[in-house]
Design a protein around this nucleic acid. Structure first.
Lengths: 223, 223
DNA sequence: TAGATTGTTAATCGATTAACAATC
DNA sequence: TAGATTGTTAATCGATTAACAATC
C-alpha cells in the first residue's frame, strides 16, 4: 500500500473506511454540537466515548481514519472537530434534496426541522396525485414525478427521499436514477434495485420495531 | 419440529447473537413475505442472498444461530421460515405500542400502515398540548403524558415511540421508564440515558442523510 | 443416480481494545 | 515537573467466507 507516511485527509482510491466508523462519525458530530451548545470549548475521546457508550480507544481510532484532529494532553476543540467531521461527511456544504411521495410520512418529512439544521434542504416535491401537483407544501412546490429530470437539473438536486407506497418504490427509484440522482433515502419497505453508481440507504420503520422487539424478548445475558 | 440435538431455540444465558445478524433477520423476513406474495413456496440461501446482496453462506450462518430451518437439497419453505423468524424476533404475537408526541412526525407514524402489518399496534397516544388531549387521532385516544403509567398498565403496553422535540426527549423517556415501558424507539436526535433493563433504538433521520451524503461524496473504490 | 442445497467446521478477514511513547 | 491525552501499533476478539460431508 502506497501512502504510508501521507495521512490521507480524504480516503481516495482503495482506502476503505468501514461503514460502522462513518455512522459513529455522525454520532460524534451530534454530541459535539450538544457540547458546544452547553458551552464546552474542548472535549476528549474519553468524554465523547462515555456520552455514547464507546471506548475512548474507539473514538480515537475512528477519527484517525481521516487525519489528526486532536491535541495531546488537551483533547479536541469541539468546533474544530465539528467542522472536520462535517467536511468528511460532505455536509460542510448544503445539499439540495427532492422528496417523492406526499402521504402522511412524506409531508411530515418535509416539515422536519432536523434536516435543515444539518444542511439538507428539500427544494422540490413530487407526487402523481393531480390534486397535489401545482400546490405548495411547507413552501416547497409540488411537481409531477414526470418532471423530476428537468427540476433535478435546474436545482442541482443530487439526493432524494422516497416516501411512496412499496409497490411504486422501484418505479420511482428508476425515474430518480434517470434524472441523475446520486443518492436515495428510501422509506419504502422494499429492497431497491439500483445501478452501482447510485447510493441508497433504506429506513424501514417496522424493522426498527422488530429489532426493538427482539432486544426486549432477548435481553443481553448481563444487563 | 424439535430442536435437534440441543440447538437452543431461544438464545438464553450467554448465547450472544450479534446485532448485525438480528437486523439481517428482519431483511430475510421482508424478502420472504415478498416471495410468498409472489407465489413462491420455497427459496434457498442463494436466492435470499442474491435478493439482499449477501453471500449464501451468510444467510445459512445467520439462521444457524437459531436452529435448523431448511431442508438439504430443497431449501427453505417460505411460510415456515417466516413463522420461525417471527418467533425469534418476538413478532409472532402482536405488540401494543404507545406513542409520545403528536407533531407532524408523530401523527405520520400513527397512520403508518407498515407497523400494523408487522404486528405492532399503537393503542395509546400521549402529548402535553391541552388542545390535543381528549381527542382521537387515527382512532387512537390522546392522553396527557402524566397518565402514561396508568394507561400503559391497563393496555399492557411494553414498547413506546418517542416523537417529541429533542429538549423534551429525556424527560419523556424517564416518564416511560417509570411507567414500566421496556423498549423505546426514539426519533429525537439525542442519546437517551436509560436504565440497563430498558432497550432503546434511535432513529435519527438527519443522520441517515449524512450517511448518504458521505457515501455519495466518497464512493467505494470499486463500484 | 445426479443435482441441489443444507448445516457446520475451519480459514480468512476485519474491527475493537489495550498499551504506550510522544506531546502539551 | 506531573498529569492528561493524543495517535498508533500490536494483541485480541468477532464476523464473514469457503469448503464439504450429509441429505433429499
Amino acid at each position: 500500500m502506497a501512502d504510508a507516511k501521507d495521512k490521507p485527509d480524504e480516503p481516495t482510491s482503495d482506502n476503505a473506511v468501514p461503514k460502522a466508523v462513518v455512522s459513529r462519525l455522525s454520532l460524534y458530530l451530534r454530541e459535539l454540537q450538544h457540547l458546544v451548545r452547553d458551552g464546552h470549548e474542548t472535549t476528549s475521546s474519553t468524554q465523547l466515548g462515555r456520552l455514547l457508550g464507546f471506548t475512548d480507544a474507539q473514538v480515537r481510532k475512528d477519527l484517525a481514519y481521516f487525519g489528526q484532529f486532536g491535541y495531546p494532553g488537551i483533547g479536541y476543540r469541539c468546533s474544530e472537530l465539528i467542522d472536520a467531521i462535517k467536511k468528511i461527511l460532505g455536509t460542510n456544504q448544503p445539499w439540495a434534496l427532492a422528496i417523492v411521495g406526499l402521504g402522511n410520512l412524506g409531508r411530515a418529512l418535509m416539515g422536519y426541522r432536523g434536516f435543515q439544521h444539518q444542511g439538507f434542504r428539500i427544494v422540490a416535491a413530487f407526487d402523481v396525485d393531480p390534486a397535489k401537483i401545482g400546490k405548495s407544501i411547507e413552501g416547497v412546490p409540488v411537481h409531477h414525478l414526470d418532471d423530476c429530470s428537468r427540476i433535478a437539473t435546474e436545482h442541482h438536486i443530487r439526493l432524494a427521499i422516497i416516501a411512496v407506497p412499496s409497490p411504486s418504490a422501484q418505479k420511482v427509484a428508476d425515474a430518480l436514477v434517470a434524472a441523475g440522482i446520486e443518492g436515495i433515502l428510501n422509506f419504502a419497505p422494499v429492497t431497491l434495485n439500483l445501478p452501482k453508481h447510485v447510493r441508497t440507504i433504506g429506513v424501514d420503520l417496522a424493522i426498527e420495531l422488530e429489532q426493538l422487539s427482539f432486544s426486549v424478548v432477548n435481553p443481553p445475558a448481563k444487563g
